[in-house]
Amino acid sequence: MIEFFLQAYSLPLIAEVRFSSDYFSEYPQQISVGKDAVSLFSQQPGYYAIHYKQPNTANSTAILLLNEGKIAVFAGEPPPTITDTISPVYTLPGGLLAVPTGLVFIRFPENIVVESQQAAIQQAGYEIAQILAYAPHAAWLSAKSGKISDALQGITQLKAISNIENVEPQLLMERRQR
């Protein structure tokens, strides 16, 4: 009798879609910034950023808009239907939200121009996005893959390049008035 009851009233199993806590597992949990790692940014669970190809300032549910509306920060889990790039959001110990852009800043001593180090930069998995006209020993790099996660994960390889003085990812934060 119990067996019949279970067969007659059993409900079909429905797959439940959940984002696991490691949704951004390809990103580092912490990012140290500064020559002596003075600032430590930590991944902030419960937030995500969408990197739009075009500015999207009409997004009323965003808690923060950066880069003239090209990056929007949201609370919660990212919806599965988003086709734009999604990244985690990081925070400083004081709670200030920061979003990685996928660009990494490097600087060599003034007597070494970035272009002379192009082979080492490429071997580390990066390409030169922009050499600073006023400082040819410094540049913005992007990962060859174009992925923000690869740009952040490869920072250790960039720091291993000889004579490099500084390497740090670009993290955008809300502008605050003093």
Rank of each mutant, 00 (worst) to 15 (best):
E174L: 08
N56L: 08
P93Y: 10
T61A: 14
I50G: 02
F4C: 04
Q44E: 15
A151Y: 07
A72L: 05
G146D: 02
V114G: 00
L66P: 07
Q177L: 13
Q30F: 07
I106V: 15
R107S: 14
P169C: 03
I148T: 13
A62Y: 09
Y27P: 00
T101I: 10
P88S: 10
S42M: 06
T83P: 05
E26K: 05
N166W: 07
S10H: 11
S162Y: 04
Y9H: 11
P12N: 11
E115Q: 05
V104K: 02
I82R: 12
L11S: 09
F74S: 03
N67V: 03
I148S: 03
A75E: 14
L13F: 06
L92I: 09
I164R: 09
T61S: 15
L11V: 09
L40I: 13
E3D: 11
W140S: 06
Q117F: 00
L132Q: 07
K53W: 01
L66S: 02
V114C: 00
A139K: 00
I128T: 09
P79R: 10
M173V: 15
D84E: 15
F41W: 11
K147D: 05
E110H: 06
Q123A: 13
A15D: 09
A135I: 01
Y48N: 02
K70Q: 14
A160K: 08
P100W: 08
Q122H: 06
V73L: 11
I161K: 00
E77N: 12
L103Y: 11
H51K: 12
R176G: 00
Q157P: 01
N163S: 13
G76Y: 11
M173S: 13
A124W: 02
F24M: 06
Q118N: 09
L65P: 00
P80S: 12
L92F: 10
S25P: 01
A135H: 04
Y48E: 03
P79H: 03
P80W: 05
Y27L: 03
I131F: 00
G95H: 08
G125A: 10
P78T: 07
A15Y: 12
Y90M: 11
S87A: 14
G146R: 05
Q153W: 04
G94A: 14
D22T: 06
A151W: 07
T57M: 10
N56C: 06
A75D: 04
V38S: 15
T81K: 02
A8I: 00
Q117E: 03
S60Y: 09
S20L: 13
M173F: 06
